[in-house]
């Protein structure tokens, strides 16, 4: 019942708003997996990023799509917690926990259930339209699931639509450039380097950003 409501809301309201009001240009749609398990790794600038990524998927695969999001941010109030977990379908991740707690357990279970994880390796939105350092959690996941495809996605424009700290979204056409899926390379350092350089390379296919 809730699953049906979620899908109706996403397909009937969220996707049309994103496509008609904000506007999304997609390149490389063929690279996008429509069935799990898979990890989508994208750069992160805005809450709109999650919306853009959700919009890429056909409505039939939406129930497998799970954005990985910060527990400290989205589980603050009961309403936000309910909405984030039940409607958006986030997998909360604890950003504050030290080494003793296994923060990736939720992600592993989701991959075992053949779900599609939406992951932002920067771990935070950072400055609008600038890419920060990548956290290595995704490499640990890839190492444990070496057969799972990792799909690099470069997102542009969401940081202008709704930068960190802004309250009112302003429509700007956004771009999502989906790269070719790749798998665990056998070494964390080289995996992280190639992930970041792949996403940076995808950005050259996006229109030039003039954000002075």
């Amino acid at each position: 019942m809730l699953q049906l409501f979620r899908r109706l809301l996403l397909v009937g309201l969220v996707k049309p708003i994103a496509k008609l009001i904000i506007g999304v240009d997609v390149r490389g749609r063929r690279n996008l997996p429509i069935a799990g398990p898979a990890i989508i790794a994208a750069n992160h600038n805005s809450h709109i990023d999650t919306l853009l990524l959700i919009c890429l998927f056909p409505s039939a695969s939406l129930r497998h799509v799970r954005p990985v999001a910060a527990a400290d941010h989205f589980l603050q109030s009961p309403l936000s917690s309910w909405f984030s977990q039940k409607i958006v379908g986030i997998l909360p991740i604890d950003r504050t926990g030290g080494a003793k707690r296994d923060v990736l357990a939720g992600c592993r279970e989701a991959l075992e259930r053949d779900e599609i994880l939406l992951l932002f390796p920067e771990g935070t939105r950072g400055e609008a339209e600038e890419m920060g350092n990548f956290k290595s959690g995704i490499a640990r996941l890839a190492e444990q699931f070496p057969d799972t495809p990792i799909v690099p996605v470069y997102l542009q424009g969401a940081g202008r639509v709704l930068p960190r700290g802004a309250r009112i979204p302003v429509p700007f056409t956004c771009s999502a450039i989906i790269g070719k899926p790749f798998r665990w390379s056998g070494d964390r350092r080289s995996f992280m380097q190639s992930l970041k350089s792949t996403i940076e390379a995808l950005s050259s296919a996006a229109p030039p950003l003039r954000w002075l």
């Binding site: 506007g23 202008r160 009112i168 302003v170 700007f172 056409t173 229109p207 003039r210 954000w211 002075l212």
Partner: peptide, 25 residues
């Protein structure tokens, strides 16, 4: 609206201009 959005997305705008863009819409 769509044409204007395309134009304002490609044209250079400053960070402070988000609300002006909204006004233009």
């Amino acid at each position: 609206f769509v044409a204007l959005r395309e134009f304002l997305t490609l044209a250079p705008t400053r960070r402070e201009d988000r609300l002006v863009v909204l006004l233009v819409y």
